[in-house]
């Protein structure tokens, strides 16, 4: 990798660029946010590991809320449309967002999705990010709240292993608590780990299977 070009020092130049690589996305995210705010819509970015229960949680929340207020869902599934189909069965607007690299959604993709639906009358848009605990943290989408869904099946130390994800989150949902005992995982300890990272964060344990904690999540999201 060593460069062996013959050059006298006066032919080599250094230039200060100070060019931010995340700025383009941040700017688009801000535009999305302005558009959403203008329509009185709260965008909610749902992040979390593969299989933590993001789709199931969104489906449960949609079922609870859709008769009371306008709800839409953006689904960033990398490969299939099975996730989107599941929610579309509830007769709410769903946009499937296919990513190029299967890594994370970005503000540009969300902007395109926003152009696909009628925003009038909507109150909430759930944006399911790609199942990935590392990438999405750096790419804001323009949502008002970022929710991280972790599940007890990811083990006792998953918060410590992926601290970055939690630093930018507004709400953490610890899902699949019905399996906590079988997994030998302490939900209280997981919640404590999150609070060590970010003391003011709200942590809500849920079981999408048993239906526990879901009313609390819905109330929290509507209060944002």
């Amino acid at each position: 990798m060593i460069q062996t070009i013959e050059a006298s020092p006066d032919e080599i130049y250094d230039i200060e660029l100070e060019h931010s690589l995340l700025e383009a996305n941040a700017r688009l995210a801000k535009e999305n946010r302005i558009l959403l705010d203008g329509h009185g819509i709260t965008g909610i970015d749902i992040m979390g590991a593969i299989g933590s229960g993001k789709t199931t949680l969104i489906g449960r929340l949609v079922a609870k809320l859709k008769d009371r207020l306008g709800v839409a869902v953006f689904n960033g599934d990398a490969t299939t449309s099975s996730d989107a189909d599941l929610i579309a069965a509830q007769k709410v607007p769903v946009v499937q967002i296919a990513t190029v690299n299967g890594c994370h959604l970005d503000a540009n993709l969300v902007a395109k999705a926003l152009r696909k639906i009628d925003l009038d009358g909507l109150r909430l848009i759930f944006i399911e990010n790609i199942g990935n605990l590392i990438c999405p943290a750096e790419f804001p989408l323009g949502s008002k709240a970022r929710v991280v869904v972790v599940s007890v099946t990811e083990g006792q130390y998953m918060v410590r292993k992926h601290p970055h994800m939690f630093l930018g989150a507004h709400l953490v949902v610890i899902n699949k608590v019905d399996l906590a005992e079988a997994m030998n995982v302490s939900v209280a300890q997981l919640a404590e780990d999150v609070r060590i990272l970010k003391p003011d964060i709200k942590v809500i344990p849920t079981s999408c299977k048993a239906g526990t904690g879901l009313d609390e999540v819905a109330a929290e999201l509507l209060a944002i």
């Binding site: 080599i12 660029l17 100070e18 060019h19 931010s20 690589l21 995340l22 630093l167 003391p199 003011d200």
Partner: peptide, 20 residues
């Protein structure tokens, strides 16, 4: 209590060196 980050989220090109 909960603090806010003021630095540490940068991701930027600072300088480039080139030959002309």
């Amino acid at each position: 209590m909960a603090a806010e980050s003021t630095q540490g989220k940068e991701c930027a090109i600072k300088t480039i060196r080139y030959m002309a």
